[in-house]
Design a protein around this nucleic acid. Structure first.
Length: 578
DNA sequence: GCCGTTTTCGGCCCGACTGTTTTCAGTCG
């Protein structure tokens, strides 16, 4: 069992503890340890071997026993005991909006209902409304939640969520009802996929409560109004849940902080406020006498609890508060730091722009260099280049480089990583290229050990410069193969191979959590749009946000190198391959 | 269940909204 498996069991114990009506603080304790364990750089097995498990924050007698048992036997007797009183699959009911542990427990114990299907029947027969604490409206709401799950358009890609948020932001702005419209929540912090988005609004004038509420409700899909009060309106818009929060101007700094989250970050922040004798909520920060502290922007909210302003992207309760308290926050990479575009496809394979057009696009964006990497010969479906075509392309690139200097096109390839981990061309062909990105495109069904061995073998190839989209997944459509992150990161660090962050919104692969650990191991990251046209270049904005979430600074990111630096870097890498 | 320059026991973030209730429990973020 690795850390992630163990975290999953700890979470499950928390869920079943809730369902059993156990102490909710016990659940919280288990959840906290699960979160910590997932982020732990060291494996729990190693920590147990060194008898250092109790050093992990939040681990006490109870959680330590569970972890030890899991490592020794692969199962938890505590979880088994908790699960024994429920039928399998009961946790599906928790996925319904409005169904929490108490209501799930009630419908199971009093109606014998343990599946969504059975719950739907019970609702249609009116049996749910008759339960104590339930009623007609709750029953109708549950039915609606079931309908939603059935027809779910579900989660959205970052690009889609941003488009919906942008449109709503414009509509709110144009309405003239608001003095301020801000993205909050994960739209502001950055995320892979979205199940909802948050917008923060400050009314333009007083006494518009009803008007504001009616306007926001009017933005909903038909039958898409989830809830509406004077300060909070929730709707569905093209199927995506949108939460609007309306706050008075004086509360804007605290509200922006509060609604940006994350929940865990805020919890930690308010705990800290409490130890300082302060109270924090979305309306302000208050001292012991209840007097509001003066706040004029978000930075002053953080200052009020003795912290430097924390960039939204890293507000994930993953060390940022401690760093802010110590004045040791990282200086994060910024869009303006980027000088080069990496991983670009042209009409030579499956792109829609010529090499020249791509280069011009980079120049128009103020960049100094570009790494051209079309598909390799095995990728027949994508027009992969034969040895011969690759040589022809090299001539075109050389000719172009003479014309468009000082801009520089580096000639490389996105080589398929074959099933055994080898690359797609003979060594002498690869040796003629400026760089090589290795990516898995086929045989995606491998198990963890096989997939990991394949990646590690490719990383060990002396000609490999960079590992492309290591997880192989497509967000919301295709699960990637499992791989051993620790082994792959160790191999990358050992061989000095760059890790791609593929920032196509369908991929965002690997996730920011992996990038963060890569940085800790000293692995260089390249933020790559995997662009097939000029619009694809814009995806770098998602990559920058993910890089920032991973605490990456300018020097951690390959794309920030000057053309001279990158030239020297590739030359040095090629030298190693000889 | 975990934790402690307030605490080894008594806390554990805080508020909005909804619906079922006549003061609050449940859910959500």
């Amino acid at each position: 069992m690795d850390n992630r498996d163990i975290a999953a069991v700890l979470r499950e114990i928390a869920v079943f503890n809730d369902l059993s009506g156990g102490n909710t603080f016990k659940s919280r304790a288990f959840e906290a340890v699960a979160r910590t364990v997932e982020k732990l750089p060291e494996s729990l097995a190693d920590l147990v071997a060194q008898d250092r498990l109790s050093e992990v924050k939040g681990v006490g007698k109870g959680t330590e026993q569970v972890i030890r048992e899991l490592l020794a036997t692969g199962a938890s007797s505590e979880l088994a005991k908790l699960k024994a009183s429920f039928p399998p699959g009961i946790t599906d009911l928790l996925s319904l909006s409005g169904m929490g542990p108490k209501r799930v427990k009630a419908v199971y114990e009093r109606l014998g209902v343990s599946t969504i299907k059975a719950l739907e029947s019970a609702c249609r027969e009116g049996r749910v409304a008759e339960l104590d604490g339930f009623g007609d409206k709750t029953q109708a709401k549950i039915l609606k939640a079931i309908e939603y799950v059935k027809t779910t358009v579900g989660q959205r890609l970052y690009s889609e969520a941003l488009a919906i948020g942008g449109e709503l932001s414009r509509l709110c702005g144009d309405s003239g009802l608001f003095a301020r419209v801000d993205f909050a929540g994960s739209l502001r912090r950055g995320k892979h996929v979205f199940k909802d988005i948050d917008l923060l609004l400050v009314p333009a004038r007083d006494n518009t409560g009803a008007e504001v509420q009616a306007f926001l409700a009017s933005l909903a899909d038909p039958d898409g109004l989830i809830g509406a009060g004077p300060t909070k309106v929730s709707i569905r818009r093209t199927g995506l849940q949108v939460d609007f929060r309306v706050v008075p101007p004086g509360s804007w700094p605290a509200a922006l902080q509060h609604f940006t989250g994350s929940k865990e970050h805020n919890t930690a922040l308010r705990s800290r406020a409490k130890t300082l004798g302060l109270k924090m909520n979305e309306y302000g920060v208050y001292d012991a006498s209840g007097a509001a502290l003066p706040l004029d922007d978000e930075a002053s909210v953080y200052r009020s609890v003795g912290l430097d302003w924390i960039p939204p992207e890293i507000r994930e309760a993953d060390g940022e508060i401690e760093a802010a308290a110590a004045g040791a926050l990282p200086v994060l990479v910024e869009p303006g730091d980027f000088r080069g575009m990496v991983h670009v496809h042209s009409t030579w394979s499956d792109g829609t722009c010529s090499v020249k057009e791509l280069a011009r696009g980079c120049i128009a964006r103020g960049l100094e260099w570009m790494c051209l990497s079309d598909h390799s010969r095995s990728a027949g479906y994508a027009g992969g280049l034969s040895d011969e075509r690759l040589r022809e392309q090299a001539s075109e690139v050389a000719a172009l480089n003479r014309k468009i200097a000082p801009f520089r096109i580096f000639h490389g390839i996105e080589s398929d990583i074959l099933g055994d981990g080898s690359l797609d061309y003979p060594d002498e062909v690869l040796a003629g290229l400026d760089f090589v990105i290795g990516s898995v495109h086929a045989k995606l069904g491998m198990g963890r050990d096989e997939a990991t061995a394949r990646l590690v073998a490719a990383i060990a190839h002396p000609r490999l410069t960079m590992l492309g989209h290591p997880g192989g997944g497509l967000l919301l459509s295709r699960e990637g193969y499992p791989w051993d992150e620790q082994k792959v990161l160790a191999a990358l660090a050992d061989r000095g191979v760059v890790l791609e962050h593929n920032c196509n919104p369908h991929r965002l692969d690997p996730g920011w959590q992996v990038l963060k650990r890569a940085r800790e191991k000293g692995v260089l990251v390249s933020v790559n749009p995997d662009a097939h046209d000029l619009e694809g270049f814009d995806d770098v904005r998602f990559g920058v946000i993910m890089a920032r979430k991973a605490w990456l600074g300018r020097r951690d990111v390959l794309n920030t190198r000057t053309v001279e630096e990158i030239d020297a870097y590739f030359a040095q890498r090629r030298g190693r391959g000889r």
